[in-house]
Design a protein around this nucleic acid. Structure first.
Lengths: 211, 211
DNA sequence: AGCAATAGCGTACACGTGTACGCTTAAATT
DNA sequence: AATTTAAGCGTACACGTGTACGCTATTGCT
């Protein structure tokens, strides 16, 4: 019942997953990784790969799942920090940027496979990002008392801006450049928040007078 | 002097470029294209490829250049339409969406290689997009009398939003879905415009009182 | 007219790829 | 203790890849 075998299997499975993640870089996308490369990096014979995944695609989807997990951890962490007070937007952006610095490869995976070549991957990534967006949407609607449609548009725009900034940040090695980018991103999010708040107010006023 | 030879060479060079472009699709990225495939599609022997490009990379950069050209045509067309009156934002978004419907592959190339695997490609794509952004920035600054830094942030955010929407539009086969996306994008751009105008005003007021 | 340049082709090679197949060895089950 | 299960390995194969090399045929130049 201890499952020495299953335990060992899970261990080398992780070896494969980690091997794939570690091979990702600015110059190396998941789709450019070969089964043999991953197996070799994990210290396995090529054919042993099949004991864990039937395909590189299957490994890839596992990776996307892990990336989604990381994204959710990010949200949790941001919420905790926000609870302690401070500018919501600023804290969110800074938390996000930290994630990118420490988990660049995970983020790269999401960015690339989003517009990648495999329909399954795209669907999986889009699902994760949508989940992320919806979570933000709920928060905005509740915290700022927004019209639900307006909240969605704001959340969607904000996520787009932040992800794009993250993508840019990945290519920066200079620290001050990144700080500058953060500032700009924060300002852009404020633009959006401002516009959304206004539209939401206008809609509410419209509903009132119509009654 | 007529240059029968050079003329013919240019012709088959175009054959290669077009062959590469035609092979692009949702399921096929440029980096997944092989020299042999492109040559075959162009009706050439693999080795004849080298008479025109030393590399697939060189062909790729040519493609990016063409994409940049398309982007500039887009700007010109949008400007012409704007001159005839109407909502600037609406016209811009609609023009952009038309481009995507008719030149999906060109746009896909830009989107993918932007976060792609080759540093040279990324640099080239980023240059084209930056040029696009700067052009918009100038327009905004002049037309709306904005603070220059604010205008840049607005232009940058707008381009990000529009490109992201374009990327989403590529995956839609339903027409009404695309119309809905356009509406949302227009609204999001208005959010940004609103926020930017406000910040610009605040900055100007600040400068006045300080004098 | 004669020579040089060159676009395009065919052949050939070494290399990396996915994966089918059978074997070994150790855990799990009986 | 005997048997079944399955993780991992090595070998082997067919296939697609980039590209070096030499050849042909046509254009351009002198």
């Amino acid at each position: 019942m201890s499952g020495v075998r299953a335990q060992q299997k899970e261990k080398t499975r992780r070896l494969l997953v980690d091997a794939a993640l570690n091979q990702l870089s600015a110059a190396r996308s998941f789709s450019s990784l070969s089964l043999r490369e991953v197996a070799k990096e994990a210290g396995l014979a090529p054919t042993s790969f099949y004991r864990h995944f039937s395909d590189m695609d299957e490994l890839g989807l596992t990776l996307v799942d892990e990336a989604g997990l990381t994204l959710r951890q990010l949200m949790r962490q941001a919420r905790q920090r926000i609870a302690k007070g401070g500018s919501v937007i600023q804290i969110s952006v800074e938390t996000f940027m930290e994630l990118i610095e420490s988990n660049g490869n995970v983020f790269r995976l999401l960015l690339r496979e989003r517009s990648g070549t495999s329909a399954a991957f795209r669907a999986a990534v889009i699902r994760e990002i949508r989940y992320f967006t919806m979570e933000l949407c709920d928060y905005l609607q509740q915290a700022n008392d927004l019209d639900s449609e307006v909240a969605y548009m704001q959340a969607n725009a904000a996520v787009t801006i932040v992800f794009s900034a993250g993508s840019d940040a990945l290519d920066m090695e200079d620290k001050t450049e990144r700080v500058q980018l953060s500032k700009q991103t924060i300002q852009q999010l404020r633009f959006i928040a401002r516009g959304a708040a206004e539209l939401s107010d206008r809609r509410k006023a419209g509903r009132k007078t119509r009654k």
